[in-house]
Design a protein around this nucleic acid. Structure first.
Length: 595
RNA sequence: GGUCCAGUAGCUCAGUUGGAUAGAGCAGCAGCCUUCUAAGCUGCGGGUCACAGGUUCGAGUCCUGUCUGGAUCACCA
């Protein structure tokens, strides 16, 4: 890479000119800003202490040295302590020739290491997926793609939270008021049907609390002693005791949910290498907790509940097993972590879970360490920010949750309507049109979410539907379709553009900008992997598409009379198109040949 | 109250290990389709980077304090 060559040469220059070594972080090379002449810029200020000369003179001496010692550097200019270097056309041309046909440009070689396990999605089986899950799924999937592209083996795993008090609530409500409704006879998607009973439970339970409080109970007393809550708790106990009737009901309702969720996953284009179920891991968790209790890592209170004392670590006591013997979230997470370690021996264990659970993961890591699990250090909580609505957080009780299926439906209709208004899919068959609308609607949704830094809270306005113009997925998809159109035409015209073009090719301004962006791609993919950030890829893809559209308007491609120029432009277009396609693939977004 | 995270244009977001005059898109206004896809391109307006100090050649970026918003501190997950 040219940046590294420049940095190394600066070090050599300083040594030869001023007879001193400088620390490795002092020499800074950055891209020259658009408004100045040159390609890369050396900031001279930090070097003055070493050179013991004025800014201008130091810059001048360095500039001369760079030109004299690097064939890649053809010239320089100095503005206010910034040394701008111009890179030779030959360098860009060599880069182009070497990489233009590579199908794996921007991906990195497979390293022989243990796999990275990426856990994401992690739904509960008591309600359908919503917008928050969508962000989780998209980030998880994309990060897995990015790591894989970076040469790491990746296992995508899902942990389904299929047991617990919340599931029992849906079950209790269905038993009481379900009238034997099921997805078939009610024609309601299974995950939604179960979710409806969860909401119903909450409603009825609230009514009961209100009436208890009217009878003089405090709010806490009332919340803990409603008949509905007691029934749910009993059901959880029965479930853990393996009462067959309860298990049957549980299986039945969970299967409704799975079928519904699978449909949603399929629409999002998401799948897993392995699915873990809490119902299958919590016992291992319990076992580990009991071992910890025996070895004195944990302690038991008089009521029988088991705790971990984290006060030495500046945290509170943490409950691990309830007084009635049932397990909590933390219990099963300990088991799942162990199971996953046994299954994969991962080099890194990434949990894609919202930042509201930061505390939970701090505690999980601490507890695992206390249990003597050295691999606890391999756990990394990829904590992403909440998705908020313009008027605040989504709240299921207030009916402001944006349902995943509804949102996807809406996006599809918007894609269809927009396409119809533009009226350019007349020769598409029904199947082709459907495929295109799916691609565009999911592209718009995925890009909208992934372009935002995962760490940050983001705002989604369900009233203004997601845009299809500007900094959007469809804009990038459109650019790809445009490029493919040129390639198709060049094939029709039987242009053999894979010819050698002359080395003295004189680049257009925008051609250099495009080459620089393309040149930067491998570095971007590395950074994205290192920082687990799809947003870097999304922003890159947008920059590239924008640059290409400007280029497209500035120059003619197929109608260029100079064969040499024309061939280069076609190839550059194809290179750009391939790069758009592969970067979008890292986001889990497909791009169309035509739109 | 303790801990953690955030605050950049009317709105949604970028802004690399501190570097030049803080950038995009949307929304608004004005232009560009007899030429390769107008889901595009060009131009205009829009900023006390929450506030106040500090560190230094240089701070949106680092440090301290204040304000505002959010998360969390459950025998929920």
């Amino acid at each position: 890479m040219i940046e590294q060559i420049l940095i190394n040469t600066i070090h050599k220059a300083i040594k030869e000119l001023y007879g001193q070594e400088i620390p490795c972080n002092i020499a800074q090379v950055q891209k020259t800003r658009e408004e100045f002449e040159g390609d890369y810029t050396i900031v001279v200020f930090p070097l003055l202490k070493t050179s013991k000369k004025g800014v201008e003179q130091t810059a001048e001496e360095l500039g001369k040295y760079m030109v004299a010692n690097l064939i890649e550097v053809t010239g320089y200019n100095i503005i206010k302590g910034f040394l701008n270097l111009s890179i030779s056309n030959v360098y860009w041309l060599d880069f182009f020739n070497e990489n233009v046909g590579k199908s794996n440009f921007g991906s990195h070689n497979q390293k022989d290491t243990d796999p990275v396990v990426v856990e994401f999605s992690s739904p509960n089986t008591n309600k359908p997926l919503h917008l928050g899950h969508i962000r989780n799924n998209l980030i998880g999937w994309s990060v897995a793609e990015i790591l894989n592209n970076n040469g790491q083996k990746v296992a995508r795993v899902n942990l389904v939270n299929d047991r617990g008090i919340h599931i029992c609530k849906s079950m209790v409500a269905w038993q009481k008021w379900g009238n034997n409704n099921n997805p078939e006879n009610s024609n309601i998607k299974g995950d939604r049907l179960v979710g409806d009973y969860y909401v119903l439970f909450d409603k009825k339970n609230k009514e009961e609390i209100t009436s208890l409080m009217a009878d003089g109970f405090t709010k806490d007393e009332a919340s803990n002693s409603t008949s509905l809550m007691l029934e749910s708790k009993q059901m959880l106990k029965d479930w853990e005791d393996g009462i067959e009737e309860v298990r049957e009901l549980w299986k039945k309702m969970n299967n409704w949910v799975y079928k519904g969720m699978d449909a949603t996953y399929a629409r999002m284009g998401i799948s897993f290498d392995k699915v873990y179920y809490e119902s299958e891991t919590y016992l291992l968790g319990k076992k580990l907790v009991e071992e910890g209790l025996r070895s004195g890592v944990f302690f038991q209170k008089d009521d029988g509940s088991v705790w971990c004392d984290l006060s030495e670590d500046g945290l509170d006591e943490k409950l691990l097993i309830r007084a009635d013997g049932t397990s909590v979230y933390m219990t099963q997470d300990i088991g799942t972590a162990q199971l996953r370690y046994d299954d994969y021996h991962p080099s890194e264990l990434i949990y894609v879970v919202g930042n509201e659970q930061n505390y939970h993961f701090d505690v999980l890591k601490l507890i695992l360490k206390k249990l003597g699990k050295s691999w606890a250090d391999h756990i990394r909580h990829l904590n992403y920010g909440m998705v908020e609505l313009p008027f605040g957080k989504m709240k299921s009780r207030e009916g402001t949750v944006v349902d995943a299926d509804d949102l996807i439906d809406e996006m599809y209709l918007t894609a269809k309507k927009t396409s119809e208004e533009l009226g350019k899919f007349d020769d598409f068959s029904n199947d082709e049109a459907t495929e295109l609308f799916n691609m565009l609607s999911m592209g718009a949704l995925k890009y909208f979410i992934l372009k935002v830094d995962p760490k940050k809270t983001m705002v989604f306005n369900p009233v203004e539907s997601i845009d299809f113009n500007g900094n959007t997925g469809p804009f990038i998809q459109y650019t790809h379709a445009r490029i493919r159109s040129i390639i198709r035409k060049s094939n029709q015209l039987k242009i053999n553009y894979n010819l050698k073009f002359n080395i003295d090719y004189k680049f257009e301004r925008k051609e250099i900008s495009l080459l620089k962006l393309l040149h930067n791609y491998p570095e971007i993919t590395k950074q994205a992997a290192y920082s687990h950030s799809p947003a870097l890829i999304a922003n890159y893809a947008y920059e590239l598409a924008k640059e290409y559209n400007q280029y497209y308007h500035e120059v003619v491609i197929l109608k260029e009379v100079d064969e040499n120029k024309r061939n280069f432009r076609i190839l550059l277009s194809e290179f750009t198109g391939n790069n758009i396609k592969s970067s979008m693939a890292l986001l889990g977004i497909q791009v169309p040949e035509r739109m």
